[in-house]
Amino acid sequence: MTTPTQLLKDKVVIVTGAGGGVGKGVALEAARQGARVVVNDLGVSLNGESSGSSPAEEVVAEIKAAGGQAIADGGSVAEWESASGIVERAVSTFGRIDAVVHSAGILRDSIFHKMTPSDFETVMRVHLFGAFNMARAAAGHFREQNSGALVHMTSTAGLIGSVGQANYAAAKMGIVGLSRSISMDMARFGVRSNCIAPHAFSRMIESVPGLSPEEQERYLEKRRQTTRPEQIAPLAVFLCSDAAKDVTGQIFGARGNEVYLYNQPRPVRTLHRSEGWTPGTLAEMLVPAFQSSFTPAERTKNVLGWEAI
């Protein structure tokens, strides 16, 4: 499994949620680029229930058939002990760890007033706690070797907005803050941390709130054709490589053949009153001054209105 210019030659990469979808695409591309890959997948359905299969083993077989090196791992990212075990397994098998791509995720969609505490916590644990657990478990190894890369999957559900996904959106925005903080705390050790907001047809978009069955099928068929998981993989692999040594603390998007950079929150307007503010003076002045700069409550499809190609 060799190519003329392998960006990840001799590196060891963990990819969580790599049994299918975006994670699988990243694992396969990382192997093509010379990495030894830990293919982590719990083998669960979209809502986190056991599927009784071992998709990680299937991906490992595919990598090995192409001449690459990989091992399967069925540990949960949601618990610290298990996540730590994933990293230690990579180190004990391959001798080091160079990058972690956290792609594992589940959905428990619900309109907010019907969302249960359990559904909120379960999604947070896989996405946000999982991102922390994997990054923290790798941090000590990265510090010792003075290098390392983290790639976290965020989502436009958090960056822009989505209906019926408050748990998922909260977790994905939490990942953005986590990644930004890691990029600052770990910079002195040569460690980079970035986010990708992927648009790709995978299990994570099979559940689309607010569409009729006919509308959903038309939507999914279009997404199958124009946004494929393997189109996300090159960006993730690049961010794991030494070629991205100067890239950290950023949020990227990948949709079809497009790659884009997201802005990050900064003040856009200021309002000053020398004698200070009262609720009444704010009521009088704030809305007229700021309203033209308010961010509309738009959904992703309204903001990214052009077709993916």
Results as ranks from 00 to 15, higher is better:
174 G>T: 08
165 Q>R: 07
130 G>F: 06
162 S>E: 10
301 K>E: 15
233 A>N: 05
237 V>E: 15
111 I>G: 08
216 Q>F: 03
274 S>C: 12
308 A>W: 07
242 D>M: 00
41 D>W: 05
139 A>H: 06
74 G>C: 05
80 W>V: 14
141 H>R: 12
296 P>I: 10
81 E>L: 14
2 T>F: 08
289 A>W: 11
221 E>N: 14
110 S>Q: 09
152 H>S: 12
125 R>G: 09
69 Q>Y: 12
234 P>N: 06
12 V>S: 02
198 P>E: 03
246 D>F: 10
148 G>N: 08
231 Q>F: 06
120 F>H: 05
154 T>C: 08
239 L>F: 07
234 P>H: 08
226 T>D: 08
210 G>F: 06
149 A>S: 13
5 T>N: 14
228 R>S: 13
124 M>I: 15
129 F>W: 13
147 S>L: 02
291 Q>L: 14
40 N>M: 04
277 W>L: 05
85 G>W: 02
130 G>Y: 11
235 L>R: 05
120 F>N: 03
8 L>D: 06
2 T>K: 11
127 H>T: 07
211 L>Q: 13
236 A>H: 01
227 T>A: 10
123 V>C: 01
283 A>R: 09
182 I>L: 15
304 L>N: 05
187 A>K: 12
291 Q>D: 14
90 A>L: 03
26 V>A: 06
275 E>M: 13
301 K>Q: 12
235 L>H: 10
87 V>W: 03
59 V>R: 02
261 L>M: 12
115 M>K: 02
265 P>V: 07
122 T>R: 14
190 G>C: 01
48 G>T: 02
216 Q>K: 14
194 N>V: 02
68 G>M: 06
231 Q>K: 12
205 I>Q: 03
103 S>G: 09
72 A>I: 08
151 V>L: 03
117 P>V: 00
19 G>Q: 03
205 I>W: 04
171 A>G: 08
150 L>R: 00
191 V>R: 10
152 H>K: 06
16 T>E: 09
270 T>M: 11
253 G>N: 03
46 L>V: 15
178 L>M: 13
161 G>D: 06
238 F>V: 04
162 S>Y: 11
110 S>P: 01
121 E>W: 06
248 T>G: 03
298 E>S: 13
102 H>C: 03
12 V>H: 02
294 F>H: 09
232 I>F: 12
142 F>G: 00
39 V>F: 10
135 A>V: 07
308 A>H: 06
